[in-house]
Amino acid sequence: MSDTTSQVAPRQAKRLSPRKRAQRTRVIQYGVLVVLVVVAALTIDGRQVQQVFLRPDLVLKTLGPELGAAFLNTIIYTAGAFVLGLAFGTVLALMKLSQVAPYRWLATIYTEFFRGVPAIIVLLAFSLMGVAFPGFSFPFDPYGTVWVALGIVTAAYMSETIRAGIQAVPKGQIEAARSLGMSPGMSMQRIVLPQAFRIVTPPLTNELVLLTKDSSLVYVLGLFASGYELTKFGRNLANTYANITPLVVAGFCYLIITLPLTYLVRRMEAKQRKATR
């Protein structure tokens, strides 16, 4: 496409006004699109595609109370891990900004380790906690195990975001707080952190979207049926019917969670841009 325009443009440059040229480019773009759609319509066998990905009878079989339970589990796993990650991530962020060097080192090592290692390996290691420490188990099993395992990983990412948020609060805010007689801790808690969390709400919500999808990894923990979340549930059904349709349905369920969240992020970012202008 760019070839044709670059060949055509110089030769006709004298006769075509910039507006005409822009118009021509747009027409070419629409043309390509139409060609692609026509080719797709002619070559793709719709029925065959539907048989593979979205068989109506299997869609109906997938929809049911068990899907609802799996949907709920996905939300519970994600929400718990997010809260835990947020709390732990805040502690890590404060450690990174600490005057005490060893705290900074510890927090940095932690972040680099858990950001650099695939989450699935961390989760696999967690599945052996009960074996490594006999008699040890997390409360609210299996939820507790999942929350801690996912929370530990996501805290590493969140701590970086929160640290950036804290540092984005102008220095004058701390000076004003201190000049009113607030202690350093009180200034952080009452003045800096509330503003920092406002700044990082959009990126943290993005983190929540990623976490929602990462919750699909908890199958490696070897859960009972009552603990199945969307992906594990979909995979089991897909294996039973030897068809991927249940997994596709599960995929759409993730969109029900993530699309409103991403919409929310965009609204918040727009609002922030307006506020800072």
Partner: peptide
């Protein structure tokens, strides 16, 4: 902190708490 409560400070850039 206690001594600072005896002196009010006003900054060039206001530094009001925006939240």
């Amino acid at each position: 902190d206690r001594l600072r409560t005896t002196m009010g400070m006003v900054f060039q850039s206001f530094n009001l708490f925006p939240h």
